[in-house]
């Protein structure tokens, strides 16, 4: 598994400019990841006042990390589209990841990446994007092993799967963070800043099961495909995405790297990860063709 590459997915949460900069500096200096996705994918409003990108890109590139720019998930004409167009215009300098059909359309014919928010459920769809120049395709967390295997069998692009972090489940025009604080989206006061890993949603019986992040809804549980890594490699999937969280991501990435390199066994790897993420729940149900929140094995 040691030819496998680790990547750090786009930051989904609305951290402060300084926190983001410090985070990526530490990633540049210490995290054993090969690719780093950058860019705001959830809400264009969050981009205002953020100027970390040039500094962070320089630092990451200097550390030998490959940069991929991620486009927005839900794109409406106007402000959202402007960010997508700006990003697509950088396709010559960086690999750009489309997360909406608008970006995929603008990037078609050039080398680009397709993100997990573009629906690829079958071979014909995969081929459509590959034919359009996608060299790197990150698949949706919802796909079971049987689908991943079938896609990997025919893929000519590099396939990626998210192996760590809360899973993106939905996107909306409505801001649930604002709604939870009885605010309107237009006067949201950026309340999503307050929850660096998303705001936990419990059932009326107190069972936690979702997390909201502005316009986005995430799983409460954190995906952990540690046990599935060998099988994924065997399928021919060699890119593994870690979705950034407000935990020690340097340490988290080291655990996965050490496991991929065979320096620690599965049980050790999961024990260290669980100790690091003390109060959290893990899941791998989607991979095993079950409800996504289920945890199989371990």
């Amino acid at each position: 598994m040691n030819k496998s590459k680790l990547s750090l997915g786009p930051l989904l949460f609305n951290w402060s400019n300084d926190k983001i900069r410090d985070f990526y500096f530490s990633v540049a200096d210490e995290a054993p990841v090969d690719h780093v996705y950058l860019g705001e994918v959830v809400c264009a409003k969050r981009i205002a006042g953020k100027d970390y990108l040039p500094e962070v890109i320089t630092r990451l590139e200097k550390a030998g990390k490959k940069i991929i720019l991620s486009g927005m998930i839900l794109v409406l004409d106007g402000r959202d589209m402007k960010t997508v167009q700006d990003m697509a215009s950088m396709a010559g300098d960086y690999l750009v990841e489309a997360n909406d059909m608008s970006a995929a359309s603008l990037l078609r014919g050039q080398d680009h990446a397709i993100g997990p928010f573009i629906n690829i459920y079958n071979e014909a769809s995969l081929k459509y994007y590959e034919d359009g120049g996608a060299s790197r395709i990150s698949l949706a967390p919802e796909l079971p092993a049987s689908s991943l295997r079938a896609l990997a069998k025919v893929a000519t692009s590099e396939l990626e799967v998210q192996i760590f972090g809360r899973m993106p489940l939905a996107i909306s025009a409505r801001c649930y963070h604002a709604r939870a604080h009885k605010l309107h989206k237009d006067g949201c006061q950026y309340v999503c800043e307050r929850d660096p890993d998303g705001l936990t949603v419990d059932t009326m019986d107190g069972q936690p099961f979702l997390a909201i992040n502005g316009l986005q809804t995430l799983s409460y549980s954190y995906a952990n495909l540690m046990a599935e890594l060998p099988e994924l490699s065997k399928m021919g999937i060699n890119h593994f995405r870690l979705s950034p969280h407000d935990v020690d991501m340097v340490k988290v990435s080291r655990i996965y790297r050490d496991r991929l390199d065979g320096k620690i066994n599965l049980e050790e790897a999961n024990d260290i990860l669980q100790a690091e993420m003390f109060a959290l729940e893990f899941s791998n149900g989607y991979y095993h063709n079950m409800a996504g929140l289920k945890q199989v094995g371990t």
Binding site: I73, L74, F117, N119, A140, P141, E142, M167, L169, A170, I171, F209, L210, T217, S219, G285, Y286, N289, M290, A291, G292, L293, K294
Partner: peptide, 11 residues
């Protein structure tokens, strides 16, 4: 077409 809430809970 971009929502997996249902499968997260029910599969």
């Amino acid at each position: 077409g971009r929502c997996s809430l249902s499968s997260y809970i029910t599969g």
